[in-house]
Simulated scan of single mutants.
Amino acid sequence: MSVTLLIEQLLNGVQLGTMLFLMASGLTLIFGVMGLINLAHGSFYMVGAYATAAVTASTGSFLIGLGAGIAAAALAGALVELIVIRRLYHRPHLDQVLATFALILIFSEGTRFIFGSSPLRLSPPSWLTGFVTLPGDTRYPIYRLVLIGVGIAISIGLYLLISRTRLGMRIRAGESDREMIGALGVNISKLYTLVFALGAGLAGLAGALVGALQSVQVGMGEPVLILAFVVIVIGGIGSIKGALFGALLVGIVDTLGRVYLPIFFRAFMPPSEATGVGAALAAMLIYILMAVILAFKPKGLFAAHD
């Protein structure tokens, strides 16, 4: 039983980590290329989930809804960059924080105005329901395994995009010396819009996929945004590899902590107290992990500009 529980929770941690990677990779790309602190990134996660839920309900096709969610988040990101973010690149970080926090409120209230305050339901397609049997007689949902596979595929695709394509070369150059690539004739404004839309689309994909596991509701992106910031700080700001390793580390540590810390404290505390203490420590565990890592690696595990 304990081995089965461990395998199941490890997979849950990897699944959480891959979804966090989709959020964190876009966030770290935007900060690495543009130097922008974007608190509104979680709003694109919410946009992707709502668009997917609405289109899936109207068409009956989860795949069409998923495509609509990604497109809606990417389009929202491009419009936000053109209308608001473009005016913030040379402003102090405090201005960026205030402006993007205002965007959170605008997206939240706009979503509530369009869809109402009640959560929307989004279910996985029928062909992704059910379970598979893993080693140790562990029955695990097919949909969660698909999420892990999608996260792995996206990480490989991002690696190839950044390392093997002309666009990736420009993104890497933009991280290192944006003035130089501008002098070489690269349209910096177009590049920034494209990167911002890419990051927003990845967040929208994460929201669309996770929306089928939980209710789709206003404000659903903010808790995930906090975890995504923890991920990029642990992994190293501006590093895609750091975002991947940081996301998996956070996902596994958070999941195992929430399951095993209450069990550990039950060995020498009453069950009710053990559950409370274990849950409280589990909630702090990833922040303790971040503090320990930063004590030894102040720029994160894979700093982009070491």
Rank of each mutant, 00 (worst) to 15 (best):
R178N: 06
S189C: 00
S189E: 12
Y192D: 02
I171R: 08
G157Q: 10
I156V: 15
G151E: 06
G182C: 01
Y159P: 00
A153F: 08
S163R: 15
V186M: 03
M169W: 07
Y159R: 15
A183F: 04
I152Q: 07
T165R: 14
A183H: 03
I181L: 15
I188H: 01
A173D: 08
E175G: 13
L184N: 09
S189Y: 11
G182L: 01
G168K: 05
I154R: 06
D177E: 11
I188M: 13
V150N: 09
G174T: 02
S189H: 08
I154G: 08
I148G: 03
L167T: 12
G149K: 09
L184V: 04
A153K: 11
S163T: 13
L158E: 05
L191T: 03
L160C: 08
V150Q: 10
S155C: 03
R172M: 04
E179P: 00
I156S: 04
L184Y: 12
G182V: 00
V150R: 13
I154F: 12
R172L: 07
E175M: 15
R164S: 11
L158G: 02
G185C: 07
K190P: 00
L160R: 14
N187R: 14
L161D: 07
E175I: 15
E175N: 07
I162Y: 08
S163D: 10
D177V: 00
N187T: 05
A153M: 09
V186K: 10
I156D: 01
N187V: 01
L194A: 15
I148W: 05
I188D: 02
K190C: 00
I181S: 06
Y192S: 09
K190H: 09
R166S: 12
Y159D: 08
G182W: 01
Y192T: 13
I181G: 02
R164M: 01
A183M: 15
E179W: 02
G185M: 09
E175P: 00
I148L: 03
T193Y: 01
V195L: 04
S163M: 11
K190N: 11
L158D: 02
I156H: 05
L184Q: 13
T193P: 02
I152M: 10
G151W: 08
A153P: 06
A173S: 14
G157P: 08
L194F: 14
S176G: 01
Y192Q: 06
I148A: 05
G174M: 03
R164G: 02
L194K: 13
G157C: 06
L147T: 06
A183R: 13
L158W: 03
L161F: 12
G185N: 10
E179I: 01
S163W: 13
R166Y: 05
I154M: 14
I154Y: 07
T165Q: 12
A183L: 15
R178P: 05
E179D: 15
I152E: 01
Y159T: 10
L161V: 03
L158I: 13
V186L: 04
D177S: 11
L158T: 00
L191D: 05
M169Q: 14
R172K: 14
L167I: 13
S189V: 03
L158K: 03
L158V: 11
Y159L: 02
